[in-house]
Design a protein around this nucleic acid. Structure first.
Length: 834
RNA sequence: GCGCAGGUGGCGGAAUUGGCAUACGCAACGGCCUUAGAAGCCGUCUCCCGCAAGGGAUUGUGGGUUCGACCCCCACCCUGCGCACCA
């Protein structure tokens, strides 16, 4: 260390100073002001990172990669005069904390507090420009009050497919026949249309975590968290009707700036298929012909002439059995066995097809042929209608099934017109299906938001009144998850038993809690107005701050959090809780960081012992070096291995900056430079302008690695500089400030500035000073570089050609032949071919 | 199988989007400084031939377009990620 650069002496000092001066404070619009944009707080910029889950492991070096990147971008926006909102908070509900608490017999509340304190200390040590006055915590009752409030909105709404928007449940039209049947029928009708509804479904049950999982949390038939094979269980679960928004979640991707791969993944996940739903009449043995029908979904109705059998899913077969179908023992046994099998068992069998003949016959509406109906578990119960028409001549899977059971495979002409005929005859219609499933919203755990619902024997299911929110988690010393499928809350009688808000009789609380995804589905809204007790956020503040201008996060959240929060935002927007002006999409732009791997390119993990702790790095090198290294490590959207030596290069760079500054500015005579010169070395001035331009553009395009390298080039060029102005150093410090906020603030103050460099104006560059009067002209002969000569930048074609032809090396390469083509590219090269 | 991203020195990577391939950094090697080490400083560093001057080859492979291709087009190989019996 040649300059005596000691980050530990200055970093804490400036972090305290920034906090005291409120340098990163985001100013709210004045409530009631007619135009928020005309006030003196300026145009807003809302930058967002995914708020962390405060785990017991502490911060991972991956977190700061995202935080620093957006920190750099928001710092630059601030210097460009924007009113920047860059907030931080905690997504603190969740399993790891709960499991840790159970294991150590402590309260999750306490474990969570401790983890948050540790994360806070770590994040603050990095000098990130977060507005800490807006810190939020999803486990704070003041926060989850609103999460529960939003659940009630889901419960009290239905989706109007005609109008394509959610509406209050009171506005649901009740069909006359339902109304005539009585109050119970009306209630049932409403319940069947709510956005949040309870349904008995087969859920994915993790026997280790003792919890029901959403489809999205099951990876290859195993629990995403612990890897245990999931089991199937029947349980009444709260569901949220995200499928109602499938079309809008696809369509509105057109209106936002997301990375292409993020859009592709979202589309893939929603999985839209267009085709037809076709009705087949059935002949069930022992019953009159055509008494029953079955509907199938197909994307290829034109191939219907080649349909030689139908296959229904075991799930659909079960519903037939439940309504009294007299099937054979063989059929019953197959259905029972198929339904018991876990996904992992099914997958381990590969693509081998199994099935059983129902002996039921169906009539192919395209040609009147009688074809057999089979049950097969390659047909999924929860997609389409749960039944397919098999066209073995066209479809590999149908073909495989046909081959196993010796069913006919017949090649027929396809005909596009079939769908029109079916529609005319009422035997089919055009239909669209999605792979997206409704969101299983119940968790049988303690450490989550209680679902604010009460059950009364007399009055049925009742929402907790809004004025009673939040429904607080009971403060208990000990609890365990249960094997019964009930939440641990069910065992806490003093909490469960309540009086019915309607009749005043005995009633019980819903004991399931919400999934981890609930609190993170709307946190970006709360940041706009985090201390509001009257609403989750005021319309004025939402209107000013939303949408989020730039949201960065991991690719692992593309199909879950990103989809859920887009959906949640649209729902609140439909109901008018978010001003229409904000738009129906929460994030205008979504980008994604990649991973930081361990040395050697493998994933960091405790078991491999290759985890780098940010505390250790900051302890040795300081925050500025750590930040800059993470930006220099490689392209932001590409995985990069940590390199313990690599960080030395960045350390040397900041050391050099500090050294040159002290020599040239504070002690100029010692190096023979002149800080009072009124002009710069011409070459240096060009490089400086180029660097400002490059850093400016690179930050905007998230190309931080090349921004850092261009600043290194600038600093390396200082050996040859003798004339510079004080303004030169101001410019250099300013472009470096977003990357290394502490050292630049320190040197800035040494130049005599009282106000923070982070509120100083971002430097501009002079377009006219990006190019010098001469350039090195490359001379190519037949595509090979043969010579390089200095030439005036403004020479003509003819002059360039003349110069080139004078070169001895060119003459040698031409070997006496006359050129047949010469191309001069101004300012770059001349290409001669013979 | 479908979708997405990528393949450049020993390593991380750069290349103004068709114009000097290998910037910047790391590692390595040689030297200076030092009692010694650390730090620091100077130099070499894509590969092959050559003492050198210089020459040749080179961006996964093969072809094409072009005065000129890491970049565009065609075919193929490989790696990573996501989805996956979705009819």
């Amino acid at each position: 260390m040649k300059s005596g650069y000691n980050p530990h002496e200055i970093e804490k000092k400036w972090q305290d100073a920034w906090e005291k001066q409120g340098v990163y404070h985001a100013a709210d619009p004045t409530i009631g002001s007619p135009s928020t944009s005309s006030g003196n707080i300026g145009e807003k910029f809302y930058g967002l990172i995914e708020f962390p889950y405060p785990s017991g492991d502490g911060l991972h070096v991956g977190h700061p990669r995202s935080y620093t990147a957006i920190d750099i971008m928001t710092r630059k926006k601030r210097m460009e005069g924007k009113n920047v909102l860059y907030p931080i908070g905690w997504d603190a509900f969740g399993l790891p904390t709960e499991n840790f608490a159970i294991k150590n017999k402590i309260k999750p509340q306490d474990a969570s507090k401790k983890n948050i304190a540790n994360f806070t200390r770590q994040i603050k040590s990095l000098g990130l420009g977060f507005d800490w006055s807006r810190e939020i915590d999803t486990t704070d009752p003041k926060y989850y009050k609103w999460t529960q409030w939003m659940f009630l909105k889901f419960y009290m709404s239905w989706y109007d497919a005609q109008a394509s928007c959610a509406r209050p449940i009171e506005q649901l039209p009740i069909p006359i026949d339902v109304e005539h049947t009585g109050d119970a029928a009306v209630t049932a009708y409403r319940d069947a249309h709510r956005m949040a509804y309870k349904a008995k479904t087969t859920i994915n049950w993790c026997p280790k975590d003792k919890i029901g999982l959403a489809n999205e949390e099951v990876v290859n038939g195993c629990c995403e968290r612990c890897g245990t094979a999931v089991e199937k269980r029947e349980k009444a679960q709260w569901m949220i009707r995200i499928t109602a928004y499938a079309e809008r979640l696809i369509k509105d991707l057109e209106t936002v700036d997301y990375l292409e791969k993020i859009k592709a993944q979202q589309m893939n996940w929603i999985g839209k298929s267009e085709g037809a739903e076709v009705t087949f009449k059935l002949d069930v043995p022992g019953q009159s012909a055509d008494a029953h029908t079955v509907k199938v979904f197909t994307t290829r109705p034109d191939t219907m002439f080649g349909a030689t059998f139908l296959v229904i899913s075991p799930e659909l077969a079960k519903t037939w059995l439940d309504v009294g179908w007299q099937a054979s023992e063989e059929v019953r046994a197959y259905v029972e066995a198929a339904l018991k099998r876990t996904d992992i068992e099914r997958q381990s069998e590969g693509k081998t097809k199994t099935g059983v003949d129902t002996t039921v016959l169906a009539t192919n509406p395209s040609n009147g042929e009688k074809i057999p109906v089979w049950i097969g578990d390659y047909v999924l119960g929860n997609y389409g209608t749960g039944a397919i028409m098999a066209v073995p001549a066209q479809d590999e899977r149908d073909q495989a099934f046909a081959e196993v059971y010796g069913l006919p495979i017949i090649e027929k002409e396809n005909d596009e017109r079939i769908i029109d005929w079916l529609e005319r005859d009422g035997m089919g219609k055009r239909a669209t299906t999605y792979r997206l499933r409704d969101w299983v919203f119940s968790r049988q755990r303690y450490w989550g938001e209680p679902i604010p619902i009460i059950f009364c024997e007399t009055c049925g299911t009742l929402p907790v009144h809004e004025s009673e929110l939040p429904v607080m988690l009971p403060d208990v010393e000990a609890y365990e998850p249960t094997d019964t499928g009930e939440s641990p809350l069910a065992a806490i009688e003093s909490w469960v038993n309540v009086t019915c808000p309607s009749c005043g009789g005995e009633a019980k609380r819903e004991t399931d809690t919400m999934p981890n995804w609930a609190g993170s589905s709307w946190y970006f809204l709360r940041y706009c107005d985090p201390h509001n007790d009257e609403a989750f956020a005021s319309p004025e503040k939402l209107e000013y701050w939303m949408p989020v201008d730039l949201y960065n996060g991991g690719m692992e959240h593309t199909t879950l959090h990103l989809l859920y929060s887009r959906f949640w935002h649209k729902f609140l927007w439909d109901l008018g809780h978010i001003p229409k002006k904000c738009g129906s999409e929460p994030y205008a732009k979504r980008r994604s960081h990649a991973l930081i791997l361990g040395e050697g390119g493998v994933k960091m993990s405790k078991s491999k012992g290759n985890v780098v702790n940010p505390d250790d790095v900051v302890g040795v090198y300081g925050a500025d070096v750590f930040r800059m290294y993470e930006m220099f490590i490689g392209p932001f959207d590409q995985d990069a291995p940590w390199d313990t030596h690599g960080i030395e290069g960045v350390r040397r760079f900041l050391d050099e900056v500090n050294y040159l500054f002290s020599m040239m500015v504070l002690n100029p005579r010692s190096v023979g430079t002149n800080p009072f010169a009124d002009s710069l070395d011409a070459k240096f001035e060009i490089l400086l302008n180029k660097t400002v331009k490059k850093v400016t553009n690179d930050i905007d395009n998230m190309r931080f690695n090349t921004a850092v390298s261009s600043m290194m080039i600038l600093i390396n060029s200082f050996d040859k500089v003798s004339q510079f102005t004080e303004k030169t150093w101001e410019t250099i410090l300013k472009i470096l400030a977003p990357f290394a906020p502490h050292i630049t603030e320190e040197l800035w103050s040494q130049l005599g500035h009282v106000d923070s460099i982070h509120l100083a104006e971002w430097p501009s560059y002079d377009e006219s000073k990006l190019q010098s009067a001469t350039f090195t002209m490359i001379i190519q002969v037949n595509g090979k570089v043969r010579d390089k000569i200095e030439a005036a930048s403004d020479i003509t074609d003819e002059e360039a050609t003349k110069l080139a032809m004078q070169s001895e090396k060119v003459k040698a390469a031409l070997d006496g032949k006359a050129p047949n083509k010469v191309v001069y590219v101004p300012g770059r090269l001349i290409s001669i071919s013979v």
